[in-house]
């Protein structure tokens, strides 16, 4: 649908046409944690890093893996498994760090493996999070099944919310 289509649908008062044009498909980055696939909106992910040598920070909160240097800046890397209260597992060669933005600061999230970018239509996202066992309802923004597999869409701000400040 082009710009003129949108203009025409607005003019002709076709709300469904306008809706399709405005919302379209949203892109998510799918990644693996343990046996499940999760996803975050692509625009929240600034970059994907291979896991460099991490410096542990003594007496830091338990979900902090450590710090790494990204182009001269210090990036705190947090373990997404621990943030989601999933069982711990040492990172493999496929592990990656997703650099996301939260509260005006870049934060690294350690994940087991990055899969692909998935395009979803709004209708494909189920809002009911009750299907996901063992996860905080707030941490789950929705669930989608683009293929045979289930994709758990994470609510990033809820996941990263500082338990001391909330």
């Amino acid at each position: 649908m082009t710009r003129t289509d949108l203009a025409r649908s607005k003019r002709t008062g076709d709300p469904r046409g306008a809706l399709r044009a405005v919302e379209g498909r949203e892109e998510f980055l799918a990644f693996v944690l343990g046996d499940e696939q999760y996803a975050l909106p692509v625009q929240r992910v600034r970059e994907i890093l291979k896991v460099p040598a991490i410096t542990e920070v003594p007496r830091a909160p338990g979900d902090l893996v450590g710090i790494v240097s990204v182009r001269g800046l210090v990036l705190a890397v947090r373990d997404l498994r621990k943030l989601l209260r999933l069982p711990a597992r040492p990172p493999t060669r496929r592990a990656r760090i997703l650099v996301v933005e939260h509260g005006g600061e870049a934060i690294g999230l350690l994940v087991d493996e990055v899969r692909a970018v998935v395009r979803l239509l709004p209708g494909e996202i189920e809002s009911s999070p009750s299907v996901v066992r063992g996860l905080d309802a707030e941490a789950v923004a929705g669930v989608a099944r683009p293929g045979d597999e289930m994709l758990i869409l994470l609510g990033l701000d809820a996941v990263l919310r500082d338990p001391d400040n909330s």
């Binding site: 920070v57 007496r59 909160p61 902090l64 210090v74 705190a76 600061e105």
Partner: peptide, 19 residues
């Protein structure tokens, strides 16, 4: 010296990190 950033501000004993 590079600053540690806001998320690590409660960690005691360190003023930053360096290469």
């Amino acid at each position: 010296i590079k600053a540690l950033g806001r998320s690590l501000r409660q960690v005691r004993g360190f003023s930053g990190a360096a290469d």
